[in-house]
Write a protein that binds this DNA or RNA. Structure first.
Lengths: 343, 343
DNA sequence: CCGATCGCCGAAAACGTTTTCAGAAACGTA
DNA sequence: TACGTTTCTGAAAACGTTTTCGGCGATCGG
């Protein structure tokens, strides 16, 4: 009597309570709930019934203390407000089932010392693994080789080839964009892109030039127009382009922002898109691309998939199957109304 | 000899090791490191020296197991890719020092059952508190009163007044926007806004109308133009507005997207901004506002501050000082070049 | 010089699990 | 019936801390 009374108090229910209710020992209860084979079916049933009757939920601290696994991973991002981290993060969060693994989020804001700080905190919490997502698609410093947990780098690859890095295929994206324009029958294709300090800008340009060369074409305007990742640069470059090369029939923009600037100028000049000039962007940044006039064909980076893959690779590494090197993930074409075949 | 050797193995270093090296018991070592008063200064020094010499870092599971506090909070968002969750999340993440409290991120994608699922997972992990951030600034269903941890709702208030909710001041924002236009000498002010299904749209309109009334002014165009939160609607409404009311000298847009649409049409019609017509947006969504032509004056929601406040309120509640009701946080005016005094 | 007080330290219990190992019970076989 | 095998169960140790409480030596007041 006093026993059941004692257990009925507002305390959180423990395995002891379950065991008592099921009339077994804690050891058996544990084994029953964890699916260990060495317990009779009938006994197991009694235990699980007791467990759900008491709404038992095991204390993860006690579990982690003994198993040495926390069931958590750290997500170290350098640029939360950047649009790139978020989809990756969503993909990762969703690839780990939330019931198996929870993710700690840390934003270092591109600050190395803040990053170190967060790293310490995460290791103190004994995360089972780490995903590091960079702010821009260029190589970043490795966290080092002597970490006690596996790490995967996403979007921004590590500078240490012994690490595993996952990146988007910028060269392939550039190729894909130009390929699409060519299939639309365009022959005089220009490329306006962003900051030449970004490796991604060069990669996208390379993909574009490769595809053009295969077709025996040259870039309209004679060269790649590097500049900045902004609408203003898109506008400025478009004006110069139209002046130097009025018969251009397609523009491949290195980002959706730039594409917006280009569209703006074309509109201003009463040049019809896509019938006279086709425009394709890069990034598929929805708010920009879908709201453009006309809606923008663009290259989607598949970031959510990148995040999912990162989670899978990390899981594998946590299971003892580590990998290394740089893995390049495919991008894809999103066709909207800013491109169309020449009629 | 064998002792020091044993400790030198690759095992993670525990308080025992520290105590041994400092020549005290684990009890004393614990007290020394936790700043308990009942330990001599000289002893404490010896212990901390030993601790840092061994790079000791306490096992948080053992700590949590005994203290019943995890030092973690859950952040339950409904819409990660939405632009509103992110700043809030950043503010919150930063208000909890990462060394004190880490945050678990969960995205429910607006799905109630997924939300329940994540909630279970977070409670299983025994978070010390919960922040719930909604996708849109309207009332949402409470998580209930019987949760074992304190909760604060951010951006989207709970429908239960017993909960604590933190929201942005939409009425104040509407007032602030119109006030700014009036100070710029504008008298014929129109208001184009988004989906009338959003409470925020009505609140902003109310603030605007209040301020106009104080000045004895009426809305140019005769009414609030409700529609959608898109550039396209901004364009369409602007055209109608110009037709019905060609002498308008200012437009208050209910969002930056809408403002972009309005700017677009004004540009098309060769109407000078801001000299002929001033335009003000809402949200301060940087990619849209800063890249606009001209850069957009707008209302900033102070979301990062909202996140910080949420973290503070939650901390207070975790310390046993709960609050309830809805707290409204101020917004602020960001002046750029799309507004200016009439000359 | 003696008893009370005070400051400091350590032994041990506790937190809630998992896992090992030994023993009990049931069963089949000779 | 005796004995080896198989199946199941439970006692106890372990994980790494925090906290209580008793004890010991020193200091102090008388």
């Amino acid at each position: 009597m006093e026993e059941s009374f004692g257990a009925a108090a507002n305390r959180t229910v423990t395995l002891r309570d379950v065991a008592r209710l099921a009339g077994v020992s804690v050891a058996t209860a544990s084994k029953a709930l964890n699916g260990q084979p060495q317990v009779r079916a009938e006994t197991r049933a009694r235990v699980v019934r007791a467990a759900e009757q008491l709404a038992f939920s095991p204390n993860t601290f006690a579990q982690s203390l003994i198993t040495q696994r926390s069931g958590t991973v750290g997500l170290l991002t350098s640029d939360l407000e950047g649009r790139f981290s978020i989809p990756i993060l969503m993909g990762a969060e969703d690839a780990f089932g939330s019931d198996q693994t929870s993710v700690f989020l840390c934003d270092a804001r591109g600050d190395t010392i803040r990053e170190k700080h967060h790293l310490r905190a995460l290791l103190t919490r004994r995360v089972d693994g780490l995903i590091v997502v960079g702010a821009r698609p260029d190589t970043r410093a490795s966290l080092g080789r002597d970490l006690p947990v596996p790490v995967v780098y996403a979007y921004a690859p590590s500078d240490d080839p012994a690490d595993l890095s996952l990146v988007t295929d910028n060269v392939g994206g550039g190729r894909l964009a130009v390929d699409h324009l060519i299939r639309c029958g365009r022959r005089r294709i220009a490329h306006i892109t962003g900051d030449p300090g970004y490796g991604a800008a060069h990669d996208r340009a390379k993909g574009a030039l490769d595809r053009l060369a295969e077709e025996g074409l040259e870039l309209a305007g004679g060269e790649v127009w590097f500049g900045m990742w902004s609408e203003a640069w898109g506008r400025g470059a478009a004006r110069m382009l139209l002046e130097r090369c009025p018969d251009v029939d397609a523009v491949f923009a290195g980002s959706d922002e730039i594409a917006r600037g280009v569209l703006d100028v074309l509109h201003e000049e009463r040049i019809a898109v896509p019938s006279q000039v086709a425009v394709i962007g890069f990034d598929n940044w929805n708010i920009l691309a879908a709201n453009a006039r006309p809606p923008l064909t663009t290259i989607d980076l598949n970031l959510e998939q990148l995040g999912r893959t990162a989670a899978q690779r990390l899981s594998a590494a946590m299971e003892g199957k580590p990998a290394s090197g740089t893995e390049t993930l495919p991008v894809r074409l999103i066709t909207r109304e800013s491109t169309a075949p020449l009629s």
